[in-house]
Amino acid sequence: MTQTKIDLPPAFPDHTQLPESDGTFVKNFQEHPQSLILTDSIGSVLQQLHPDGDYAIGQDCGIYWRETEPPEKGAEAPDWFYVPNVPPLLNGEIRRSYVLWRELMAPMIALEFASGNGDEERDATPLSVSAEGETTKPGKFWVYERIIRIPYYGIFEVKTRKMEVYNWLNFSYQKLQPNERGHYPITPLGVELGLWHGTYQNQTQYWLRWWDSEGNLLLIGEERAQLERQRAEQERQRAEQERQRAEQERQRAEQERQRAEQEHQRAEQAEQKSARLAERLRAMGIDPDSEE
């Protein structure tokens, strides 16, 4: 009996077999510093949430959600995203992309830094198939909402300083309203997302930043170091002031001792003078103790 050979379909590719870039340029000079300031400042929060270190942060990295030809058509690359409960390395190798059909874990939050008016980031065009069987590339918003289902999606228009945050609820994105501080709570992380005006990497402008649930800004490493330097300087100044107070107290005590010593000497001198006077009076036949 002759066995029939069965041709199995090839296995789904992983992150080492898929392109890590679609060849496009970074859209503006703020994009990479913006990603860095977000990653740096939220590190301590993620370490508390993941003491085992199982989380990954992607910065302008592809999320592959379907197989296509060319492969890049089946990927979206958020400017910044965070995935909980996945290892930062795969089999000891640095991730080149995030392959959804291999990981089976959607990012919790994705952020886009729009150089234009945000139309691309809000594009909800669905995936469609032509009569010839060709598919069109769907909009980014539609992919995040309907396929990957990222719980939180934020859009920051760099030029207009406008930001929007969406929450995936009841199978669709609902636009969130900011709180009284103008921030958007990201409840699973216990943080808030908002805009901060300041200088970072020689650029003074508005940046996306994290705050804690009480409205305290989460600091980056440079800010933490500067704060520590300020605290150390304040402690040095307090110690110096305490040393000066102690020295002043020592000087006051020394002055008081000297005054007491001078008073004691004056008393001794007065007593000695009185004794000499009494001795002379006795020599003259006068009793100095007589009341007459």
Rank of each mutant, 00 (worst) to 15 (best):
30 Q>C: 01
63 I>T: 00
14 D>A: 05
72 E>H: 04
44 S>V: 11
71 P>D: 15
39 T>D: 11
36 L>R: 07
66 R>T: 12
23 G>M: 09
31 E>Y: 00
23 G>E: 07
9 P>Y: 03
3 Q>I: 13
55 Y>N: 03
16 T>S: 13
45 V>N: 09
21 S>H: 06
35 S>D: 01
12 F>A: 12
69 E>K: 11
33 P>F: 09
69 E>P: 01
29 F>W: 13
63 I>R: 00
32 H>T: 05
47 Q>E: 15
28 N>D: 13
72 E>D: 09
39 T>S: 14
30 Q>V: 05
54 D>C: 08
15 H>K: 13
41 S>W: 01
42 I>D: 05
60 D>F: 02
68 T>P: 08
64 Y>T: 03
39 T>H: 11
56 A>T: 04
14 D>E: 03
38 L>W: 02
13 P>F: 04
50 H>R: 14
42 I>Y: 07
18 L>S: 03
16 T>N: 08
4 T>C: 04
51 P>W: 12
21 S>W: 05
3 Q>F: 14
31 E>N: 12
42 I>K: 08
42 I>Q: 06
49 L>T: 03
14 D>R: 01
18 L>A: 01
39 T>F: 06
16 T>F: 05
45 V>A: 11
67 E>M: 04
54 D>W: 11
43 G>M: 05
21 S>D: 06
26 V>E: 05
48 Q>V: 13
60 D>H: 06
69 E>Y: 04
34 Q>R: 00
11 A>N: 07
47 Q>K: 15
7 D>W: 07
50 H>W: 15
13 P>R: 01
7 D>P: 00
17 Q>F: 08
16 T>C: 08
5 K>V: 09
57 I>P: 06
50 H>E: 12
24 T>F: 08
12 F>R: 12
31 E>I: 01
2 T>R: 10
25 F>L: 14
